[in-house]
Design a protein around this nucleic acid. Structure first.
Lengths: 94, 94
DNA sequence: CAGTATCCATTTCGATACTG
DNA sequence: CAGTATCGAAATGGATACTG
C-alpha cells in the first residue's frame, strides 16, 4: 500500500496499462490530477522502479512513460481493485 | 481507492478475512495501528457498509467485527495487493 | 510540451492520557 | 475490554503562475 498509496496512483498506472503514454496524454486521461501531483507521482513511481521515463531531445520536448516489468506485475492488483470498485459503485447506485 | 484508502485499511480487512475478530484481537494482529486510528477506520468501514459491529452487553464488554457480503467482495482485491506486494518486497530484498 | 515554484487547505497518523 | 479526548506532526492534494 505504501507503493499504491496516494489517491491517484492506481489511476495513473491504469492509464499506462496498455502501452507507453506521453505526459499530455496522461493529463487527458486523468483530467482531475493537477500537473504538480502528476509529476510527483510519476517521479515517485520512477524512483520506485515501476515505470521508466524517456525524454526525447526534440523541440518541443517529448517525454514518454512506460511500465517496466515490475509495473506490469502491479496490473492484476489494479485490475481487481477497479473491478471490485465498479461492482460496489453499482450497488450503491441502487 | 477512496474506500480502501488509508494506510491501514487493507491490513484491517485482511485481519478480518477469515472470520469475526474482537477489538483486542485486531490490535494484536496490527500492533502498529493506534487505538484511535483503528477505531476511526472501523467506524468508517461500518459506515461504508463493509463490516458489521456487534457489541455484547457483557462485563467486560466484548465487541466483534465481521465482514459483511460487501466486505467479502473486497477480499480478492486485498489478496491480490498483498500478493503482488510480497513479490515486490522479495525482489527489493534481492 | 513538460514541467517547477509557491502557498495553502485538508486529511491522516501518532502519542498520551483518561473512562464506563 | 473497548474505547474517547486532545494535541500536534506530517504527508497529500490543489490552485495559480511561471519556464526552457
Amino acid at each position: 500500500m505504501g507503493l499504491l498509496g496516494g489517491l491517484w496512483t492506481p489511476e495513473l498506472l491504469w492509464a499506462l496499462s496498455d502501452g507507453p503514454r506521453r505526459f499530455s496524454e496522461l493529463r487527458r486521461n486523468c483530467p482531475y490530477i493537477s500537473a504538480k501531483v502528476m509529476t510527483n507521482k510519476l517521479r515517485e513511481l520512477e524512483r520506485r522502479n515501476v515505470l521508466t521515463r524517456t525524454a526525447m531531445p526534440t523541440s518541443p520536448p517529448t517525454v514518454e512513460y512506460e511500465l517496466n516489468p515490475h509495473g506490469q506485475e502491479l496490473l492484476p492488483a489494479i485490475r481487481t481493485i477497479v473491478d471490485v470498485g465498479s461492482r460496489l459503485l453499482l450497488r450503491e447506485a441502487v
